[in-house]
Amino acid sequence: MDLQTILAEVESWPIEDRLRLVERIWEGLGDRGDEPGLTEAQRAEIDRRLADDDASPDDVVTWEEVKSEALRRAGR
């Protein structure tokens, strides 16, 4: 079976099954040590965020605030 045929079949699956497939594939890559490395842009963003945290360690959001905002956005 060729890749296009497989993709067409997978696209017909329910979203939950497709997400499970993606998770299994991703986990399998990590098990073999095939995880992709960070791009320069990703590495720069992580460095920027770490520097920001170091500069303002007290500038935080509590879990309660995060949860409340997430629930608000989800309409609950």
Results as ranks from 00 to 15, higher is better:
57 P>F: 06
12 S>I: 07
33 G>W: 10
60 V>K: 14
34 D>L: 15
41 A>D: 15
5 T>K: 11
12 S>N: 08
32 R>C: 04
27 E>S: 14
39 T>G: 00
1 M>W: 06
4 Q>C: 02
58 D>L: 10
50 L>V: 14
8 A>T: 07
13 W>V: 09
63 W>G: 03
16 E>N: 10
62 T>N: 01
7 L>H: 03
45 E>C: 02
44 A>D: 12
15 I>D: 01
44 A>L: 11
32 R>E: 14
15 I>A: 03
67 K>F: 12
69 E>W: 06
71 L>G: 04
37 G>K: 03
27 E>P: 01
29 L>C: 13
6 I>R: 06
71 L>W: 15
25 I>K: 02
53 D>G: 02
20 R>Y: 00
39 T>L: 05
12 S>L: 11
33 G>N: 04
66 V>S: 02
55 A>K: 13
32 R>Q: 13
14 P>D: 11
26 W>P: 00
55 A>C: 07
30 G>P: 01
74 A>N: 09
70 A>R: 12
49 R>A: 07
18 R>L: 09
39 T>S: 12
31 D>M: 11
60 V>T: 12
6 I>Y: 02
5 T>I: 05
74 A>T: 08
31 D>G: 05
12 S>R: 15
26 W>T: 13
70 A>E: 06
60 V>G: 01
36 P>V: 08
24 R>P: 00
61 V>I: 12
15 I>S: 03
51 A>R: 07
70 A>N: 09
35 E>I: 02
63 W>S: 07
23 E>N: 10
52 D>Q: 11
51 A>K: 08
55 A>L: 12
21 L>I: 14
44 A>W: 05
